[in-house]
Design a protein around this nucleic acid. Sequence first.
DNA 1: CTGAAAGCGCTAACAA
DNA 2: TTGTTAGCGCTTTCAG
Lengths: 329, 329
Amino acid sequence: MNISEFAKEAGVSVSAVSRYFNDGYLSDDKRALIEAALERTGYMPSYSARTIRTKVTKLVGVILPKLSSESISRVTEGISEVLSAEGFELLLVNTANDYKREITSLELFRQNRVDGVILLASVFTDTHRALLSKMRVPTVIVGQQLKGFNCVCHNDLGAAYSMTKLMLDKGAKRPAFIGANQDDVAAGRDRRRGFEKAVTEAGITVDPKMCEIAKFSMDSGYEKAKLLLSGRKKPDCIFCATDNIAAGVMQYCRETDISIPGDLMIGGVGDSRMGKVLYVPLSSVHLHYKTAGREGANMLLSEMKSGSEVHRILQLEYDIVERESTKRG
Amino acid sequence: MNISEFAKEAGVSVSAVSRYFNDGYLSDDKRALIEAALERTGYMPSYSARTIRTKVTKLVGVILPKLSSESISRVTEGISEVLSAEGFELLLVNTANDYKREITSLELFRQNRVDGVILLASVFTDTHRALLSKMRVPTVIVGQQLKGFNCVCHNDLGAAYSMTKLMLDKGAKRPAFIGANQDDVAAGRDRRRGFEKAVTEAGITVDPKMCEIAKFSMDSGYEKAKLLLSGRKKPDCIFCATDNIAAGVMQYCRETDISIPGDLMIGGVGDSRMGKVLYVPLSSVHLHYKTAGREGANMLLSEMKSGSEVHRILQLEYDIVERESTKRG
DNA sequence: CTGAAAGCGCTAACAA
DNA sequence: TTGTTAGCGCTTTCAG
């Protein structure tokens, strides 16, 4: 059933029906007539027909690298909360860590189909940048800071610095690092820099042999821990760029009877649910993921309303959460 | 730029352009002309205009109760994997455990906007059922079994039965249960029935005082564990309807020095990542969440293709994963 | 193989 | 307030 059939059924004109659904002027009689017919028929206007006229889709494209990650799903939850309150739906693209799909989705969203885009990417290539600057819909990047674009990000450097400093202040002398892909500026590069800053400030020289790069997984953390802890110079603390990596390290320590925090302190980032229930509860840095999602959505919302081209960067702070894994002395 | 402007730019007719994008007949010359113009202009056809004619949105609505749950995100990942391979995008609605939003989203999807719907709900009311039978687009329910509708579900009863039996076979005599909301047929009712079946079969009478209902959270598991373990009749094993609940129980045991599995065996359901790294690794039942998502998507796909009205129910089996928390003798 | 033209269902300008 | 009507950008007959 379309609007004119429905109008006939209701005994009113098409414009009356259109006005009913668009807060237009309408007398109470007509309104009642329409509501009665609505009850009878269950008519609903077609979104696409509306979109073709108004150019408004009430859809926001969300591009993310994976779904089954605690941090990403928290961000998405924040996004969803704010946008759905404003009547937007999420058009979700899970790129499964495939850069190409990030590009094709951006391409897909570039022209039409959505009113705005939120991008949660880990690595930005030149292709990303080129495409992003050609976007014709408002776009916000969450979780990374990219000059010249709207971003909501975390203070990754500060988070890593504080966590490392915490362990150093407790007397650690041989700090080690297990980080993430350095092409990922936030979780990779900045967290490494934070670690290095704290170490250097403590008057210790950063030893490249004490630094490993892992994948975002427990297994990878386990492997890197084995590498670091079976060398001759043994670390007395390990800063891990994510809680997942830290959990892997802990697994290894458990199997090899390395006592935590006695022999080795461990610190992570992300304050995941898992960290709290590990066999030694994990000290970590709480990052405000859900808030990042909310703020990203708010930024997008105001961008969509104003249509302005001012770029803004919002950096969220962090909280140190100390648990047993660093509780020495 | 619209199709006719673009056609002019390319020096071909509107229909040629349309055919280019729709695998229609087209000579190589025109094809080349169009591709050249595409390069120049970056033109992309409008989805809504296409939809208004073809009635095809290439969108699937996915309704879920929350995002930040390991099981749900794994299901969603499976859905996304299959559907995106077929060129569909996901229109995601996070109802935040609000039944009303489930209803309004179903309502929203009922008529148009999406080509199909996948529903991950925990509780079905009469309103759900009424709305579901009025859906005009193919719909599949994942994670629950609802008579008369397309479902992909788990063998929740069997999973609970096997986990409980495992503990009973190891000599447990005073089994306890911490379950979920009984209105949730899968995670609530069926898992309870599975527990009861195993207990009864072992010649033990199910003691209602040994059964508690928790929320889907660690904290709630902790509280219920306190209740069960501070009574005078102390359980020697607890079957928990979810790993999260089990993690809470374990927290309590750790604080009160109850030894696992010596004093108490614990079994969960879901085989979450967390279970593996708990201070006592948790025995659990692996449910094939990602597969459930994939199969749900496949079912929807074939439903959308055939337009048939045959209802199918697919039940996936489970795997027991035994870890330390039940390793006795 | 090609192009002209008739809609798809809706909104909004315009005239009443 | 109301109703009529001209498009929005596209697909798809239909006649060539």
